[in-house]
Amino acid sequence: MLLYTRRAQRIAWAVFGFFFLLLFVLPFGILVLAAFTRQWNGAFPSSYTFSNITAAFHKDPLDGLETSLITAFVSSVIALAVGTWAALALDAMRNRGGKALIQTVFMLPIAVPSVVVGLALLVAFSQGPVLLNGTSTIVVMAHCILVTAYAFQQLSAAITRLDPAYEQAAASLGARPYYSLLRVKLPLLLPALTGSLALCFALSMGELGATAMVYTSHWTTLPLRIYALDDRGHQFVAAAVTAVMMTITLAVLLAISKIRTRANFR
């Protein structure tokens, strides 16, 4: 508690409410409003329609949605596997140099602009032995690289927080390392695993920079199609597609967090 007079508290809340509504809540409200707008000539939409929403489920955006969902699922599952592996390897590594190496390599994609990640893939796989330019693989690959860093970071933080007593108890009962990894460590990490799966999924759904570099016409993710719609002046449809995308993303996040409740022991 910082403010003790009723008046000062009210002022603080008013300041908070002003900024919070104006900057964080209003944009969402407007987006939803725009999604249902046919015409907007005055301060408020002059007529409303469902056609933007139905347009969002027509061929083009629907294709994009499918592309985005597949890309996000595949890349976040791969990222989780690789990120978890790297985080476990980091935990097992006793050598300081080795630790630093793993950390640097796996944090690097956070520091490198996503556009540059895309550019690098484009430069490397447009020539040479492995030709991936123009395939869906290169898009998934870009997403994998970007979100693996976040999965790694989340998991290694969770592993540091894990009480070593559990693993030691398992070992004292005769559990070999792989057995205690499977039966003790990973189950205890389950909340962190689902949490970072959700994060990776959301980040991949909204990814724009790297995808803009490597996408092809037959593998165009939803954000890029929203960009195109916006660019061509179909703002209301763009808003509708964005709203649909957010709803679906939130639904998936909610579904993933449901896995959590059974795994949350403590």
């Binding site: 009480d163 007593a165 559990y166 030691q168 108890a169 398992a170 070992a171 004292s172 009962l173 005769g174 559990a175 070999r176 390392p177 205690s180 003790v184 189950p187 205890l188 389950l190 795994a263 022991f265 403590r266």
Partner: peptide
């Protein structure tokens, strides 16, 4: 020997029961 090959029973202060 690594701990898991020793076959000793151990109980620690905070028990470390597997919560799951």
């Amino acid at each position: 020997l690594p701990p898991y090959k020793r076959g000793l029973g151990m109980v620690v202060q905070q028990y470390a029961l597997f919560p799951h």
